[in-house]
Design a protein around this nucleic acid. Structure first.
Lengths: 349, 349
DNA sequence: TAAAACGTTGGAAACGTTACCGTCCAGGAG
DNA sequence: CTCCTGGACGGTAACGTTTCCAACGTTTTA
């Protein structure tokens, strides 16, 4: 018979009652000291603080949050694949801002389907979080309307609910990318699109507007809608389009993962059309041809969302739903500056 | 005077008492139904379930966790920079495993200093999480010993406490990397080390053992200890060592970010010693010379940690502290297969 | 000197849930 | 017919905190 350890040491942590007994004061007094100590004599407060130190008392946040009106000091963050540096940046930044205000961040587990998202959100709400930051999936989010907890959407708005939203200027970014390529003289620019998320639609719109402004028609056969938003799909689509009789001289890929797939296909084909990607990514400047991208401050996206949510949760901000839009900027690195006639040639490097 | 909105809709969510009233049953009966419904007649349970649906009732997890013995259904995860794909992978994987068991994951905000880490952990403990997963900083973690909550360390052990640990075979990885370079005939191999974390020390030990086994002395001037663990420090150090009169013919970089700096320096110098990095990274195969790495299953690190912690938290696992070590494997891509005499030459690509 | 005002403190209720205990009723055994 | 057993259910205490109210003592004011 194997020796077993006690499953939990079960050294129940001291409570305020223990502290009160130890300090020889009432329960209410301990609470007052713990919460700033107003209305308590210095001498008494000192005794209480001493007892707290001796016992190693720590306030039980769960019990605290139970009191009516007292919201918990946690925010929830619901997002997709943390492995995507885009999401990771948001998470990191919002975590920092929340932490500075003494808030913890709860991450719901996020499958990719809308139903899973809804379940995750419900779970989080049942944990009485003070607010929700959500990078929403496509489904309807009306169920959040009367949830009684403030919500800030990140990166894209949700349907069925009017709430705060923090996002980047997708249309502007798409426009800038297309303008840049058009200025180089490109007239046949392919655009690789991830499955129709809101953001992608806006990027396409900017792309079209830039063409219209330049008086150049968009070749609809070069508007490529992928079935999936991963690198593999982009790689396959790129290979296909570059092998057509009349391939594009430039490619705008609408997502960081997509850009990766595009570059992989081009590398294998030995072709070098101009390439501009949406969203910057690590090592973009170290690839055989450094990659030109349209970038925005993703961390600021997370920071803004967290700040806004904290203000909503505290009741400090009672304005109608806000819409914060962060700018995009072009970062020229080489791949986006290739002239139209370079397509198909191998570089001499 | 600007019109203000009510800060919170304040539609206090229905409680079990509301459900009980609505269904015409007692409070205890509702609780029984919500928790599996044993000892309740089918007909009664049906009425209760109907009331729950009509009111949109959701159990208040905070109140539930307040009851003695009832641990909360959240795990805490404390780690460094989420922007590092290594940490992001751990977070994602543990999130998935926890989610499958209905557990949420709370991320503490993590500054880089040990004091901040301690504060973050205390915060998390005060939230009554069921368990802690920690990628520990260097400081002493003895304060966790009697915290009454199970702890699993991830990636590296902590001092001052005997707890479960899930990590990769750092020494083996270091050995494999060095062996691989030695087999190519390299005799002057530099190793770039991040500030002395446990893991780095083990990798160095493996590096030394491989040398000893091959009967080759390690040139101590090529054991380079960085002041900081970022790419910039590695870039500077690499430039410095490659410009020495007798530069190394190969470099082993002990961290993914470090590898990035190493490659950057080499690219600018136009030198091509063999390079092996510890930990795989995105786009490693698409760089001008694809990068050979020693890799392990980081996601499995996170999954194992979460599984183990869940078992500990539930009391299902009462074994003495476990030590799980995941293997490392070499992924040959090119940079690690350069012969000694290629150093200094530009490639012909 | 008495009354009022104020600051400090103790005590109790309440938050929403679970667990225990007691009651009630139906049905079977004696 | 009575007693007992057992399942179903209702009520209540308890978890640890915050907040409100009452009580007390001291000081100020009339």
């Amino acid at each position: 018979m194997p020796e077993t350890f006690p499953s939990q040491p079960e050294v129940s942590r001291p409570t305020m009652i223990d502290v009160a007994r130890r300090a020889g004061v009432g329960l209410g007094t301990v609470s007052r000291v713990v919460n700033g100590g107003h209305g308590v004599r210095d001498q008494t407060a000192q005794r209480v603080r001493a007892a707290i130190d001796e016992l190693g008392f720590q306030r039980n946040e769960v019990a605290r949050a139970l009191r009516p009106g007292k919201k918990s000091t946690s925010l929830a963050l619901v997002l997709g694949d943390l492995t995507n540096p885009f999401y990771a940046s948001i998470a990191k930044a919002s975590l920092e801002v929340a932490g500075q205000s003494g808030f913890a961040v709860v991450l719901g587990s996020v499958d990719e389907d809308p139903e899973g998202e809804k379940r995750a959100i419900q779970e989080l709400v049942s944990r009485q979080v003070a607010g929700l930051m959500i990078v929403p999936d496509q489904g309807d989010h009306a169920f959040l309307q009367g949830a009684g907890v403030p919500v800030v959407f990140v990166d894209r708005p949700a349907t069925g609910i009017d709430a705060d939203i923090v996002m980047v200027d997708n249309e502007g970014g798409g426009r800038i990318a297309a303008e840049h390529l058009l200025e180089q003289g490109h007239e046949r620019i392919a655009i690789i699109l991830a499955p129709s998320y809101y953001t992608i639609g806006r990027r396409l719109r900017g792309f079209r507007r830039a063409h219209r402004a330049a008086g150049i028609d968009v070749d609809e056969s070069l508007v490529i809608q992928l079935p999936e938003g991963n690198a593999e799909a982009a790689e396959k689509a790129t290979r296909e389009v570059m092998l057509r009789p009349n391939p594009p001289t430039a490619i705008f890929s609408s997502t960081n993962f997509l850009t990766e797939g595009v570059l992989r296909a081009l590398g294998e084909l030995g072709r070098e059309p101009a390439v501009v990607g949406f969203d910057d990514f690590r090592l973009a400047d170290m690839l055989p041809t450094p990659v030109t991208v349209v970038a925005s401050d993703i961390a600021e996206l997370g920071r803004s969302a967290a700040r806004l949510l904290l203000d909503r949760a505290s009741g400090a901000d009672t304005r109608p739903p806000q819409r914060i839009v962060l700018p995009c900027a072009l970062i020229e690195r080489g791949s986006g500056e290739r002239p139209p006639d370079s397509a198909g040639k191998r570089s001499s490097r």
